[in-house]
Computed example of a mutant assay.
Amino acid sequence: MTPELRAADRRSLVDTVVEQLRNQLAERAWRVGDRIPTEHELADRLGVGRNTVREAVRVLVHAGLLESRQGQGTFVRSTADPSAVLRGMKQANVRDVLELRIALETEAARLAATRRTRDDLRRLRAGLRALHQHGPQPEGAVQADDDIDFHLAVVAAAHNTALTEVYGYFSSSVREALVASLGQDGMPRLDLETHTALVDAIESGDPQAAETAARNLLMSPLRAVEALIPHDTDTRP
């Protein structure tokens, strides 16, 4: 069934067309892999010029939602709008971020234990040295940057392109949550022993030990965050 498209007004025509096409994609008007209508067809339905449609399509191609294939047309690549995902991530609280980190990083550690290379291990050991240089007192953004680099190295050692891309996209929210928690009353300091245990487990080649080490590393700050949340605002089932 061909989706209905409303005629665009004269206000910022390209933005209007982009928004309408985003909405159609979000509502699954076209499935992943479907070819969308031609520029001529979209221009007629929206009451705008083909140049306006062409520019709007380029915006969505750049955003990763559409894919142009020479001589074939434009196809749906994804119905999940990355910008909407990013906006949602910006609204996540520290507990949300930690829970997602546990899900991603325990699997990354498990894979890294069997796939890590010598270069991966060198990067992980260098990351540990950078964290040790900060000493016992947290240093806010500087320490957060080094900690994020360490965890990015763990994920990279899994050699899973999709996981690396997802975590990289997510890392800005991780950093914000980490900066917010460092030095906060009730929050544990960054534990160098658990970070070292994670690298040791990955180097040993034991997937279960690596997964457990990654979980242990993140459970301490998660428990601290949960202890700070009043029971009447805890929305978990």
Rank of each mutant, 00 (worst) to 15 (best):
R58G: 10
T52G: 08
A29V: 05
G88Y: 07
T117S: 15
A209D: 14
K90E: 15
R122D: 14
E203Q: 11
D81T: 02
P37F: 02
L222C: 11
V174I: 05
G71M: 01
T38D: 13
H195G: 03
G73C: 02
H231P: 01
R215W: 11
D234L: 03
V179P: 11
L5K: 04
P230Y: 09
Q20N: 06
V18W: 06
E193I: 03
D15V: 15
P138E: 08
G127T: 05
T106W: 10
D9C: 05
D206F: 07
L198T: 05
E193P: 00
Q24I: 11
T2M: 12
A7P: 00
D96N: 12
M89L: 13
V14M: 03
T114Y: 06
S12Y: 07
R236W: 15
R77C: 04
K90V: 12
L66C: 03
I148F: 03
R77L: 03
L86K: 14
F170Y: 14
E67K: 05
L98D: 08
P188G: 03
L42A: 06
A29F: 03
R125E: 10
L66K: 00
E19V: 02
L192P: 12
L65T: 00
T114F: 09
L163P: 04
I148Y: 06
Q20P: 02
L228G: 12
H134R: 02
G205R: 13
R58E: 13
D81S: 01
L121I: 14
H62S: 06
R10N: 05
T233S: 12
L228P: 15
R31V: 02
R223C: 01
R35K: 14
T16H: 11
T117E: 05
R11E: 07
E107R: 10
M89H: 06
T52L: 03
D15T: 14
E99S: 09
D96E: 08
D119E: 14
L65M: 10
G49M: 04
L218P: 02
G88Q: 11
A112Y: 00
T106V: 12
V53M: 00
E19G: 03
R223E: 09
S171V: 03
L182G: 13
D185M: 04
V85K: 05
A144Q: 10
R116A: 15
R87L: 10
V57G: 07
S83A: 13
Q184D: 10
L60S: 04
L13I: 15
L198R: 04
R122W: 14
G88R: 04
Q20E: 04
I229F: 10
R28D: 08
R215L: 11
I229K: 04
E165P: 01
R69D: 09
A214H: 04
G47E: 05
V59D: 14
R45A: 09
R118L: 15
A158M: 07
A56R: 01
T114E: 15
R58I: 08
G71C: 07
T235E: 13
I36S: 10
D119K: 08
A209I: 00
E211W: 02
N160D: 15
R31Q: 12
F150A: 08
A80L: 15
V57F: 09
